[in-house]
Design a binder for these strands. Structure first.
Lengths: 343, 343
DNA sequence: CTGAAAGCGCTAACAC
DNA sequence: GTGTTAGCGCTTTCAG
């Protein structure tokens, strides 16, 4: 069964292509009668316009790109859900790209986004990204760009983020109040702004209480492969001054911390208390239930998408970048209860 | 900064558009010298062809659609990863659509896929999908279609699935061997082929051992909203002949089973043993560690994508649909150990 | 080896 | 209220 196009449809109807085109888009120039006839005929012949011809003509693709470091993290799944909801409601299509935390891939993907393929870009930058020229290039091409969650510190574009510093501060305070004297922060990258801000908040809190023996050993970097990261945590847990509190900056590190603790038979929370930045759905049923700083992933996605569409659809109303901060919430569970509460 | 197009580029080079076009695509018709000149010039001016103009001309979009019920399930995240890897390697773009388990949405999305927007479709059908006319329509339009994981039983198209029946059979046998006398199967939909096959295998095993008091009460349907599903499981756990073994057919039901057990203070595995069809990364660190039938999600994604690209790129070699079965593997953990092993 | 011209399918000025 | 025409940016015969 071959697809019918506008010209063929017009011929069959004994009308011009432009009349049919207008009729299908409910133009006021066309009489109700012919509109009706055209619509019925189009449905009968299963006609729908070629989107790329339309895009070419209108210079609008009704498509946006979503660039993520990965999709395995629950956070990004939830964010995609939010983005997708907004996009679907507005009749936009979603092109998904994964940078796999690589700057080089991220850069290549952005090149692809600047040739008219998409009307806008939503991005959460890779952990390797420190240079921003590839992002600047997109902005120079006048393609709307909105960051969500992972945004560069010093880049002039709209973004939707969470209160990382405050939450980092909070986690340290909480661990200390629960009796920790040697808490550490597990970061996945010194370059990644979210980790950096969370770590800064954490450090500030620890230093404020004056319990730190060595301020340079508060933050540990678990970059590299999964295996390297696991090993790093393992070494930390086997070291002579093993931490009695751990803050995992991302979901993956939380899981790895639990894995290592289980293997090494280190009891959480008796020997090590844990708090994780995470949206893990299984947090309440882990062993023990994991205390989390739960980020508003879904809302971050919807908000970022809304900001983007606002810019795309009402470009004249856009004056300057907007920075929206959506707070995370602390969910206290057994992984960080104080000693006095042990049963 | 405005984007440059082919015509402008050609003018600047004092060449015709066709020569420049050919040069950029390394045609043998063009001399090495001019090719070099053109390429350098193109890079310098940051030229890249408008993909929609190319698509329109070539009637190829270098884009495929991936239609999923949801993205929150780990299985689909992993599958997307696999699909994305193959697509990226071949220079294809990925359009993602979520049906949210709704037949109506799935149908609408498929309409969108048959107007030239995509060169092929990968789909995992919704739990509501029983009618296949929308799928047939796509096939009639000659658009390559490959199912992964969730495929209709009786539809003539390529698919990549797992050994659901056998695994269902296995779970029942395993629970019974571990001492269960009243195992049940939690299905998310009677219509969904994967659940159906898993349930059929399960039932066959239970009936084979002759322990079933009421064969009609082996499978419980937890469809509807999250809350309804939770309530169903709760009622099951509070009923007078509470099951002593549960098989969760999908990730969500596994999590809910754990949630309910935790709330109701029902001990897993002492009071109820659990096995879940799931790719949950956190299975080993749940309380207790969850025994899983782990599906080859990533490989299913890559294989399905490969089948699709084979059809797209070598349509003449395609003779008939292929059905690939990738086996799942059983990961035994504490949620289903026999009584004799309790410590 | 290079260029002219047609046309992919559609929309939007502009005529009638 | 309907039709004619030009053209979005590119590729591809076909001529030279």
């Amino acid at each position: 069964m071959k697809r019918i196009n506008l010209k063929e449809l017009a011929n069959l109807l004994n009308l011009s292509t432009s009349s049919v085109s207008k009729a299908l888009r409910d133009s006021h120039e066309i009489s109700e009668e012919t509109k009706k006839k055209v619509r019925e005929f189009a449905v009968k012949h299963n006609y729908s316009p070629n989107p790329y011809a339309t895009s070419l003509r209108k210079k609008k693709s009704k498509t946006i790109a979503v660039i993520l470091p990965e999709v395995a993290d629950n956070y990004f799944s939830l964010a995609i859900n939010g983005i997708q909801k907004v996009a679907e409601a507005r009749g936009y299509h979603l092109l998904i790209y994964l940078s796999h935390e690589k700057y080089s891939i991220e850069k290549a993907v952005l090149e692809e986004c600047s040739n008219g393929r998409v009307d806008g870009v939503l991005i959460s930058i890779s952990s390797e990204t420190t240079d921003h020229s590839h992002l600047q290039k997109l902005v120079n091409e006048n393609i709307p760009l909105v960051f969500f969650d992972r945004a560069p510190e010093d880049f002039n574009a709209s973004k939707v983020i969470t209160n990382d510093y405050d939450c980092g501060y909070f986690t340290a305070m909480h661990l200390i109040e629960d009796g920790c004297t040697n808490p550490v922060f597990l970061s996945m990258s010194s370059a990644l702004p979210i980790c950096h801000r969370r770590a800064e908040g954490f450090k500030a809190a620890v230093l404020a209480t004056g319990i730190a023996s060595d301020p340079n050993k508060l933050v540990h970097y678990c970059d590299g492969t999964e295996e390297e990261s696991m090993k790093k945590i393992q070494e930390l847990f086997e070291s002579k001054n093993r931490p009695d509190g751990v803050v995992a900056s991302v979901e993956r590190l939380a899981i790895q911390t639990y894995m290592v603790a289980q293997e090494s038979e280190i009891n959480i929370p008796k020997e090590v208390k844990v708090i994780a930045f995470s949206t893990l759905e299984t947090a309440p049923i882990l062993n023990p239930p994991l205390s989390t700083i739960t980020q508003p992933a879904y809302d971050t996605g919807t908000k970022a998408a809304e900001l983007l569409f606002q810019r795309i659809e009402k470009p004249l109303q856009y004056t300057q970048p907007e920075c929206v901060v959506l707070p995370s919430i602390f969910m206290e569970r057994k992984s960080c209860i104080p000693k006095s509460h042990f049963s």
